[in-house]
Design a protein around this nucleic acid. Sequence first.
DNA 1: CCGCATCCAACAGGATACTG
DNA 2: CAGTATCCTGTTGGATGCGG
Lengths: 122, 122
Amino acid sequence: MKPRHTHLPADCRAISDILARIGDKWSVLVVTRLGEKSLRFNEIKRSIGGISQRMLTLTLRGLERDGMVTRTVFPTIPPRVDYALTPLGRDLLAPVSALGDWALRNQAKIARAREEFDRQAA
Amino acid sequence: MKPRHTHLPADCRAISDILARIGDKWSVLVVTRLGEKSLRFNEIKRSIGGISQRMLTLTLRGLERDGMVTRTVFPTIPPRVDYALTPLGRDLLAPVSALGDWALRNQAKIARAREEFDRQAA
DNA sequence: CCGCATCCAACAGGATACTG
DNA sequence: CAGTATCCTGTTGGATGCGG
């Protein structure tokens, strides 16, 4: 896989913007959860564990705004809301998974580098 | 390119950690700059444009700590410091570029989704 | 069940001034 | 040139309580 990265500043900004969007604390976790199947609000919440209600709401809104996720409300009592990936969101899963695989393959190496660096600093 | 994403919470955390690391405001910009060739501190600064001295220092320290970047000091006057990617850093460039390409391909779609969403909200 | 509003602590990040 | 130190601001994100 050849990098072939663009050297144009404007393009790099675009990349940076997208990364900032999905690189926040929860988006990737949410998207990967929805990659399996569509889920209800509290299903996502329980599935992730550690995310506050507030942040899940905000994260889902952001993803919805960017066209990654659809929000379907069933006007029942109690209310039921389903979240699912759009084609765009599903499409995103591929490069994110690639990065995720890289992260898994190299996490030991990174951890060791950190220890070494911190040891030197002390 | 098949996703094959892991469904294990722990793995997803690792992915999330890495994304948080390189998903900050400047890391990707710096790494892609260094992907071309090794650069001096102010070369990076000028090349990016808009980054403060403070943030460039912090970003480079972070990347160095994680083993992505090497820092070479030439004890001359005036001092000269070269930054370069490690093999690990260069290796990271591939999946990041993949994500970058995705971002470029889909930025119009995302922009349109945003406009649509914001229009609805109003 | 879903989610909004409020409050608050922590942190990220810019501007500026100073050092070897 | 390549930082460090200080200050100050906006944003992020958790906790809690209320409402449809």
